[in-house]
């Protein structure tokens, strides 16, 4: 069953078509990857799914209900939670307070929210930094904080916008099992990612976006050898040249 369906969504910014008739299916309980070269429209598509940008045409369907015109905070209440590619911490608050703001969405009581925040902090490996100002965290720490805040809202669908970007290989190795564990707890995940090692490692299915259009979609192994995908990344004729060399 598909939890989230994006139906032929288009978004124009003036003369630029950032997303052009893109469709996407996220089955419940899976990790779905969204990849594509820079400027392909991945982040715009994410913004459309999370409600920060309204599409010029097309629909976003969540559990069989049309949510195209729903505001971001309403979608968060409907259990769709996102992280930001450029991290957006509440800089003046501590790490725990940051996470608690996510937890307050479903828990009005302070002690409950703080307890949940502490649990989530432990889970993402921020327990030791709980009392620090969010602005004092390292890049890897801030990425974890993004993840923690989103998790604290107890989502059914987690939208991860390049949580691995800017991390070093050992930090990436640390965070991959965490993402898999979140899925194993029943949270469906849609992730934008450039780190292919993570995509092939984590995702059951991958959708490839190039110049706003979906050019391929399927299992990661299949995608990597798809001529259209290779050409989108490496230029026209690249697939044929690689074939010739092989």
């Amino acid at each position: 069953m598909s939890l989230l369906r994006v139906d032929a969504v288009t978004r124009r910014f003036g003369g630029v078509v950032a997303v052009d008739g893109a469709s996407l299916n996220v089955p419940k309980g899976t990790i779905t990857g969204l990849i594509g070269p820079n400027g392909a429209g991945k982040t715009t598509l994410f913004a459309i799914i999370s409600g920060f940008v309204t599409p010029s045409a097309g629909r976003v369907v969540w559990k069989d209900a049309d949510i195209t015109s729903m505001k971001p905070h309403q979608r968060a209440r409907q259990c769709i939670s996102r992280t930001f590619q450029i991290v957006q911490p509440f800089a003046g608050l501590t790490v725990l307070e940051n996470i608690a703001i996510g937890a307050y969405l479903r828990h009005a009581d302070r002690s409950e929210a703080m307890r949940l925040a502490a649990d989530v902090a432990k889970r993402v490996g921020l327990a030791a930094q709980g009392g620090q100002q969010a602005s004092a965290l390292t890049v890897a720490g801030r990425k974890r904080l993004e993840l923690a805040r989103a998790l604290a809202t107890e989502p059914e669908l987690l939208l991860l916008d390049e949580v691995l970007a800017g991390l070093n290989p050992s930090e990436i190795r640390d965070i991959i099992p965490l993402i898999r564990a979140i899925r194993d707890d029943g949270v469906t995940i849609l992730m934008i990612e450039h780190v292919m090692q993570a995509v092939t490692n984590l995702c059951e299915q991958v959708t490839v976006l190039a110049q706003g259009r979906v050019i391929a979609s399927g299992a990661p192994r299949q995608i990597c050898t798809d001529p259209a995908v290779v050409e989108a990344y490496l230029g026209r004729g690249a697939a044929a040249r690689m074939q010739a060399h092989a």
Partner: peptide, 18 residues
């Protein structure tokens, strides 16, 4: 907490259901 979230970062607050 909601006041503080809005003060610190409106987009992040929105994403967290505020």
């Amino acid at each position: 907490a909601q006041f503080a979230a809005v003060r610190e970062n409106e987009d992040a607050a929105r994403a967290l259901g505020i």
